[in-house]
Computed example of a mutant assay.
Amino acid sequence: MEFEERLAALATKVQNQRDAIQTEEATKNAFVMPFISTILGYDVFNPLEVVPEFTADVGVKRGEKIDYAIMRDGEVQILIECKSSTGQLKIEHASQLFRYFGVTNARIAVLTNGEVYNFYTDLDAPNRMDEKPFLVLDLADIDETLVSELKKLTKDAFDLDSIISGAEELKYVGALKREIAGQFRDPSDEWVKFFTSRVYDGAFTQRVREQFSTLVAKASKQFLTEQVNDRLKTALGATALPVSSGPAAAEAIQSQPVAENDLDRDTEIETTLEELEGYQIVKAIACAEVKPHRVVHRDAKSYFAILLDDNNRKPIARLHFNGKKQKYLGLFDAEKVETRHPINALDDIYEHAESIRDAVRTYA
């Protein structure tokens, strides 16, 4: 299994088991040890590679233990401190890492709750752990640009010099990306004022602040949507087509079980960009359970089908986008009976993510 596949598999495991993990010890056993083993490639049962409950006396602090120390050639290289997956990581949780970092040869320290991994080094002052991580790995939302950097920390490709040399750029680029993402989700007053001052000539009063807080958030979301659509158009070699909209129907509509021969192609079929965009969303959701290449689409006259393994006996969803007004997302139960759910926008598909994953799990 390739590195990216192992990482995706662990992310799925964390997602599926998160609610059942309630303690720090359970977090270590279920999530952190598999991370050290399957992702970083170290033998968690070999004390020459991984030392659990690592002890190093620190000044007046005697007998304190760090959860894991990863060894190379008899020297400590990476320190890992774990917290329960039920809580958010805070710098206050890293007090032991700060103390141990200065009295061992470790240049990398990790603070984790099993889902988020914060990697630290000593960019600001030698032998003193930085307060801000240079790399943040979130298994709930993996940043693909960080995968190559994570590989450098693995047993087979460990390259400390390369890690440290690139850590400063990673630290600030990552922090900037997280800050920008946060502003897109929930714009601060400074962010709102910054953009308002460039498009509005009047005084920045409380009324203007309230008005433009909504407008800036709306414009940000539309901008991101348009960027995604432009990428899809480029990838698909297609041109934009008008998107119709209409009021949502009051109730979902149930249809008959799937007919296994009703997906035959027809010369009058026209696949739209909107259908392909909807397919990409369903595929992204389904990939939490199966590899991407297994999720395929077939267009029919009256609907756009999304299937597992290109098998019409394994329907995942249907897109009913051919109507002039209302659009529907068709989902299937265990008996392959389809229920159509009204949607007003493609983003509404995400509201049915669990049903999509349930359909995939039924076949997989």
Rank of each mutant, 00 (worst) to 15 (best):
Q77H: 07
K28M: 03
S165M: 12
I163K: 11
A300N: 05
T154H: 06
E75L: 05
L137P: 02
E251D: 07
G102L: 08
F134P: 01
D310A: 09
L331Q: 11
R207S: 04
N127K: 15
A305P: 01
P292Q: 04
L232R: 03
H352K: 14
A249C: 00
E190C: 02
L137R: 04
E81N: 03
E2H: 13
A249P: 00
K301I: 12
V192F: 11
L346W: 01
L329D: 08
N311E: 07
C287H: 01
A248Q: 07
G63K: 09
D299S: 15
V290C: 06
D333Y: 09
A217F: 01
L241A: 14
E270F: 13
F194D: 04
A20M: 13
P133T: 09
A240P: 09
T267Y: 05
S245D: 05
F304T: 07
T239G: 04
P133F: 04
D299V: 10
R209N: 09
L170Q: 11
Q183K: 10
K155G: 06
P257Q: 02
V32D: 02
D309H: 08
N29Q: 12
A109E: 02
N127T: 10
I70F: 05
F212N: 06
E268N: 14
I306Q: 05
P242T: 01
F54L: 10
S37Y: 11
L241E: 15
A359Q: 10
G182Y: 03
I78M: 08
T145R: 14
D309G: 01
I269E: 03
F3N: 06
A284Q: 14
F119V: 00
V243C: 07
R72V: 07
E226K: 12
E210D: 14
I80N: 07
Q280Y: 02
L10D: 01
L137K: 04
I39G: 01
I269S: 00
C82L: 11
S95D: 05
L241G: 15
M129Q: 04
N46V: 05
D57Y: 02
K151I: 15
R361S: 10
R18K: 09
N118R: 15
I164P: 14
K233H: 00
S148V: 15
V136H: 02
L263M: 11
P292M: 04
P52V: 07
D122M: 03
K336Y: 00
I253L: 10
P342N: 11
S37L: 01
P315F: 05
K314P: 13
F45Q: 09
V360D: 04
R209L: 13
A334L: 12
Q280E: 12
C82E: 03
R72Y: 06
I78Y: 04
P187C: 09
V216T: 08
V50S: 11
D159W: 00
Q222K: 13
E49M: 14
I108E: 13
L146I: 01
D358N: 13
V173K: 15
A300Q: 06
K151G: 10
K221R: 15
N311S: 13
K152M: 10
E351N: 11
S165A: 10
E351W: 01
I356D: 01
D186E: 12
V290I: 10
Q77T: 08
E251K: 14
L232Y: 06
A175K: 13
Q280K: 12
V32G: 07
D19K: 10
T339F: 02
P242S: 10
I91H: 02
S85N: 04
S197Y: 00
